[in-house]
Design a protein around this nucleic acid. Sequence first.
DNA 1: GACAAGCACTCCCGTGACGAGAGTGCTAAT
DNA 2: ATTAGCACTCTCGTCACGGGAGTGCTTGTC
Lengths: 346, 346
Amino acid sequence: MQSGQPIGEREREILTAIVETFIATGEPVGSRTLARANREGLSPATIRNVMADLADAGFLEQPHTSAGRVPSSEAYRYYVEQLTGKARLSHEDENIIQDSLHGVADVQEFMERTSHVLSLISHNVGVAVAVGGPKNALEHVYFSRLGDQKVLAVVVTRSGLVRDRVLRLDLSQADLDGAARFINENFRGWTMDAMRAELARRLEQERSEYDRMMASVEQLYRQGALAADDAAQTVYVEGAANLVAGEQDRQRLQELLQTLEEKQKVVALLGAYLDAKQEAVRVVIGLDQAMPSMRNFVLIGAPVRVGGEVMGSLAVIGPTRIDYQHAITTVSYIARLFDKLLNESE
Amino acid sequence: MQSGQPIGEREREILTAIVETFIATGEPVGSRTLARANREGLSPATIRNVMADLADAGFLEQPHTSAGRVPSSEAYRYYVEQLTGKARLSHEDENIIQDSLHGVADVQEFMERTSHVLSLISHNVGVAVAVGGPKNALEHVYFSRLGDQKVLAVVVTRSGLVRDRVLRLDLSQADLDGAARFINENFRGWTMDAMRAELARRLEQERSEYDRMMASVEQLYRQGALAADDAAQTVYVEGAANLVAGEQDRQRLQELLQTLEEKQKVVALLGAYLDAKQEAVRVVIGLDQAMPSMRNFVLIGAPVRVGGEVMGSLAVIGPTRIDYQHAITTVSYIARLFDKLLNESE
DNA sequence: GACAAGCACTCCCGTGACGAGAGTGCTAAT
DNA sequence: ATTAGCACTCTCGTCACGGGAGTGCTTGTC
């Protein structure tokens, strides 16, 4: 058999058995072990034949001759694909999640706790990001002069996100108040994107007949006071310490931790693989494409939507040797919880 | 010599030599190595005698007979004490710091970058915390009804800190606006502490003659809308990955990373050892007192003040085997830079 | 043809022996 | 007071060795 799908029922069974025992033990799995566990009582020799076929087809790898077999990325993909989505989270885990997220109203805090509880339950890295929300409705802006050349800009969106930044600008408080009033009166309820676009249009068009206030608005706009772009994201990464137990190579361990510390990289990862359209949990095996230091790692994540718009995403990141079923149900459970909680309060 | 101070000039010299070579190499240092480096050309045998004395006095420890000596915590304390404060930061390091912090106006961002640059330069863990600032002057509050039972509270202080939280409250936007107007008009410029105290007093005293607005204020107050307490701190911890190289014991490494992930613990550490009164950098050797998982670790930190009030603190955390001189000058340099930048703009 | 049994072979890994290297403590000499 | 010398200790890297686990292949059986 060369690269043909291992369509046979027997092949399938043996492949998933290999994947599962490897995930459980972490050691190359040999034909004998497999034969013992196999309920049909096949002999090691038979299993060896099948294994040889699977190896030819690219599903198994051998660290060295006379060692057991290790699943390849392909094997994991196949394994995940044939998992039934029917597994339920244990009550224990459900309780932990409920306790952890109960009564939290703040999106930020929700994200923070989510990353924490994800890492806790999965024993891997839990990640949650809240995107700045260019599609969020503007609720209120506020500008405050802090001192020489410094202005504090605060933007509140209707979903409860608060972004603040300090700009280098020299405007009086009166000017700032005027600009804020203008924006609040004209753009309340607009999406950030729409507001910015309209503002840009007006500034362009009415350039000749500027009054003092519009000049202030322009300055604020140009300095990014109203930005709600990709940079305006909060990322929570927790459980990096869990990787210590799993990764033997110290060099690699350090690289991994470093990568996880660079939050933008994590954001990029999630962004690259999760999109708004997908409905369910997505499993990405082999992150080395997007991030070389993450080879042999997988991402199990889902977007969080509020009213159709992506508000953020959550994920578990761990080695290929991860409990897929468990991680998938956990992520899925929290994502649904999220949707329910966030969407009910609209 | 039993527990007497190693007052002798020779002892001092040898002790610092031991500490320095141990810091540099990480291996127990023997009499021969020391003799080679010693400029007075003492023989190994003589040095052995001195070392025996130092060991008796509690400054040196021996992993096993016939191994070199390792400095004890006492030795590090003694070593740090006798360091001259005159060392200057290398221009290279100064440039890195300047580049990294240049043009940053926002306190939060300043803290974030500080922790980053600290970890970068020291090759250890960099920490920076901004305290909520109970002594900060109130600039502005803003309340917004988000939906059923949810209210967003935003507090802006004069120093540019923005705190937001979502409360479970059911007040109309009109009520919220009234309460905000009341607080802004009456308490602008007050310190958070004073404002809270006065508010509590008034609520107590005028309980009988409440109007609708004061009732709203009370609800907000009770729900913590105006809290600016210890919980309201932001912590930045960076460079945890650097510990991988230094710590051999995996079990311990994991514990360390876990501790650093629990931000409150880090805050507690800084809080326990750094106080407003101290002028310069403080070096704390042996963190196991406050945090068992941190045994054999040291903290090199300084508070950040604005106008006499503590606004936060910064620190390097690393193993006892750290380049003290370098870490001290780095922390001191950034602390001074901080003071300069923050205080100039007042 | 599918499965099983047997067998020779490969490779890893734990164990114990062994010697080099580094360091110590002590004693005797300067 | 210092130092040279010496016997002793402890670690660590290397190497040989054998057990264990696993493979591939060949042959045999239903």
